[in-house]
Design a protein around this nucleic acid. Structure first.
Lengths: 149, 149
DNA sequence: CAGTATCCCTCAAGATACTG
DNA sequence: CAGTATCTTGAGGGATACTG
């Protein structure tokens, strides 16, 4: 058990999403999933977190249909955790975090990993939001429209 | 006090970012900031969180130069919290969360708020990642390239 | 109004042992 | 190997009183 239930029913989409992802581990698990990890032990060794906590998080992520359990790709009897379509759609969140971190969380000269295009080997371009007319959409150019329940 | 120091020096940009944003409140504060809120009391009433916790979070966000304190826009003696450039660049993260939440955290028919373009009034388009050749970049098309320290 | 100072408590997280 | 079960700890968070 865990996780602040009040967020779950919040009217704001961000708050609801934070019910699942608003902690120190979930996004790192998902990062690892995008990185190709699928086995309980892979996550556990990669993240160095306690097994019961990992199990709890994985359970929530499966319940929320971000991960699904599938038969192991090798012949073994175990299950693996694979991203669902819903989980794959978290990719922009992961990339947004990565890119912001790359830009702002390193001292000059300090090296870090980079996300590159598989096809070209070039660093991935910045996530950009474009308006309907094709121009860049900045934060001042959008606002939240409240809808009545 | 608070916040897991180990993440702060992690080699992964995502992990470092989670040192600041990986909790249930920080991103909601920033969402409110994008929504135009600037005063301590605004945040406090909007989020309904304890004042000491809010003060703690605001302090970290100022230390990390995501918010800065500026003189109040009205004549009052108080300070306000404004997004820095670094803070404004969190916009894609906020939008990515919002859009994913809108797509996946509501039952069919359940209404929610929408982000619209100020100029056109149309809903903001999906954040998309494009490759250097202009084609859509999906999660399988990119990978993390490790750099040696 | 915008915080700070205390006190308290829950729960997220860790450690470890155990099981199919 | 992939978890579950237990126990413990500490930090994240809440409530409230106080201050410039």
């Amino acid at each position: 058990m865990a996780k602040q239930e009040s967020l779950r029913a919040d009217p704001c989409p961000m708050a609801r999403t934070l019910y699942i992802l608003g902690d120190r581990w979930s996004l790192l698990i998902i990062r690892d999933a995008f990185d190709g990890k699928r086995r309980f032990g892979d996550f556990q060794r990669s993240l160095g977190m306690a097994k019961n906590i990992l199990a709890e998080r994985l359970k929530l992520l499966v319940e929320e249909e971000i991960l699904q359990m599938v038969p192991a790709s090798d012949g073994s009897t175990y299950q693996e955790y694979a991203l669902t379509r819903k989980g794959e759609e978290l990719f922009p969140i992961i990339v947004a975090f990565r890119q912001w971190g790359e830009s702002h969380m390193y001292r000059k000269g300090e090296r870090h990993s980079v996300l590159v295009e598989r096809a070209t080997g070039k660093p991935v371009k910045r996530l950009e939001l474009r308006a309907h007319d094709g121009s860049p959409l900045n934060h001042g150019d959008a606002f939240v429209k409240k809808l009545k329940a």
